[in-house]
Design a protein around this nucleic acid. Structure first.
Lengths: 363, 363
DNA sequence: TAAATAAATGTGTTCGCACACAGTTTTTTG
DNA sequence: CAAAAAACTGTGTGCGAACACATTTATTTA
């Protein structure tokens, strides 16, 4: 603080006024070549970095963010990105950042469009989008490009070139499949079979599921010496308990050497329920997401591993990256894959507690 | 930003001057009961939160931190807390925070004392200490208490009551032992044995090792139905390759059903080297710490799991917690156990890359 | 060459808060 | 009850940067 270089110091060294230094720093023009040179030379010798606090205070403008993400009904998944956004906001609100939420139902395209239009009617600097509906999202984001609104995508990836995309923040589905395969493989013996099972309505995130399956199968292809056979299963309606019971009964009768199941969605707890009714308890299970029902079965060791996709961090980092981009003028990594945490009974508390997510900002 | 309450606004509502509001907020005294009441009433109705940026800017003081941590010689472990400290510093430097480092060798008590005295001679607001030498550390920290210097402990826990301790940041050794046990257990079958092996000079962190061993053994006690036997091993000098070869030869000959080894230190790679010489490759290995040698064997799948103790985060969070404590006036959790990340070949990159550790501050 | 215009530069105000100091009111003392 | 002391309150300045505006200097035009 004491010996930190200020604009005033540069001005003295360069032999000009602070106003001129400011003009050079911000490329505002109206500076003679001679003065500019003097300032640049002074800058070189002084290693100046602006005081962001003073800068933000003087700038005195709002940075408005709109968040277009699904409603948090049904399970707790979408609560978490929202919580992450709100937590990050606590950190950056002094910098003039504000967030407005625009929610839509995960199966309602019209609502998505309606909300996205509502965003465009107002004036936002940035949006955080979960682009669940591909077409509608692309259309919306193109309009953002035109209006010079930058955006961060979370959870669902969209391939956008030469756009106002700040970054994508989400999971690497393929490698999470590989990871799940490795975990199961570690617990299985030669001759046993591993099943990958999609339990989902398959409304929107099918690309995720395809990638996970590919990752899972590639692992066993590369490790065929393990002697583990892979079986694929699909079950569309997680709420049809009877149907699911029959589904697993059929598969496990047909292949009694299935000793592990990888559930590619957050529905592992439904699988546990079905297996319990079947009286089966010796299967190794790997699933996704730290939602309450899964955590209960993780605690009782009926689920062995859950892969955490860090939904809280998705929201948190979305805000932080916008902050860095807008205020700190730092270009972030376009593609930010969150850690694939391996969660077990013994370390679950670290990932459910938020103590370490509640932290300071800036790269 | 726009509609945010300022001191001036409170003053208007309360019908007093900003100066009086300031005196009430900071409990500076010299305020009549009548004025104080008016201000407090206004505060209740207005939900004011101070603009930390403006506050820090106006306060215009340095927050000086001294970091007393081991030198980074020999392996890369102590580089990481240091990197974490430096990264956090980038974030908080605008708030007037500075850090000076005081290094010592891990086996040199005199140097520790010398450096701690050097710290006391200057005027620091806070210290970050890795209290490797118990006695000397306690003596130093008591002097800090007297001089009203607050401190954060990292990596090694010390039981200190009623002191200027801000918080302890480090690992939960016991549960990391349990975690390691669970991982091995998942890969072993009934009738096989699991070995816990300490490979270390045992100079300082023996409490860690004791706790890890306890956690490891407790797991198998609680899960005796798994039918896995536990064997304990010690080897003091990791650099004695021949000795280590003989050590494992002896143990594995005596107990050929040992199918998994849990190495309680960061020396797993030495064990791999010994086993390679013995021509053994079917053992499941779980170790600690993402140091280069371990990561190489994780990549080649000769080590199955590494438990990450987040040394980078230890340093990072130490600074952040001091920041929150001194500047944001937030009392942190006294005991902060970092996540015990399960690291495998398939997700190692997420924990070695620093992209997500380089982030914003504040609770 | 003077006047008009353009370019360059310096000064002053603002952001919200902290703190010093001056100014005002109340209380105490002789 | 006046003077002195204490208690209280308001105003002003500075933190570092951003930007508006006033002022100075250089260039163009008549």
């Amino acid at each position: 603080m004491k010996d930190r270089i200020r604009i005033k110091d540069i001005a003295i060294v360069a032999g000009v006024s602070p106003g001129t230094v400011d003009r050079v720093l911000h490329k505002r023009g109206n500076v003679s070549k001679k003065s500019e040179e003097k300032v640049l030379k002074a800058l070189e010798s002084l290693d100046y970095s602006p005081n962001v606090l003073a800068s933000v205070l003087a700038y005195n403008k709002e940075w408005k963010i709109a968040a277009l993400i699904p409603n948090e009904y049904k399970d707790s998944f979408w609560n978490q990105p929202k919580d992450g956004i709100l937590k990050a906001l606590q950190v950056v609100k002094d910098y003039g950042v504000t967030v407005d939420f625009f929610h839509f139902m995960e199966n309602n395209e019209e609502e998505f469009v309606r909300q996205s239009e509502a965003i465009l009617e107002k004036t936002y600097n940035c949006v955080i989008v979960s682009p669940i509906f591909t077409e509608q999202s692309i259309s919306f984001l193109k309009k953002c490009d035109q209006k010079d609104i930058h955006y961060v995508l979370i959870n669902t990836y969209l391939d956008l070139e030469d756009s106002n995309l700040i970054c994508y923040i989400g999971q690497d589905s393929y490698h999470s499949g590989t990871l799940g395969a490795k975990l199961l493989a570690f617990g299985l013996s030669a001759g046993e079979s591993a099943m990958i099972c999609h339990v989902e309505e398959l409304v929107y995130n099918s690309q995720h599921l395809i990638d996970k399956e590919r990752g899972f199968k590639d692992y066993f292809k590369e490790h065929h010496d393990l002697g583990i056979n892979v079986i694929t299963g699909h079950f569309e309606n997680p709420y049809d308990t009877v149907g699911m019971y029959n589904f697993f009964k059929k598969h496990l009768t047909k292949c009694p050497n299935i000793k592990g199941i990888f559930i590619s969605t957050s529905r592992a707890f439904h699988v546990v329920n079905a297996l319990k009714k079947l009286g089966i308890s010796d299967l190794k299970l790997v699933g996704y997401d730290l939602i309450d029902e899964n955590l209960t079965y993780l605690e009782s060791e009926e689920i062995d591993f859950l892969i955490n996709q860090n939904p809280f961090k998705q929201g948190y980092l979305a805000v932080i990256n916008i902050f860095n981009f807008l205020i700190r003028k730092i270009e972030p990594n376009k593609l930010q894959h969150l850690p694939l945490d391996v969660v077990m009974k013994e370390n679950a508390n670290y990932y459910t507690d938020r103590q370490f997510e509640e932290m300071p900002i800036v790269m």
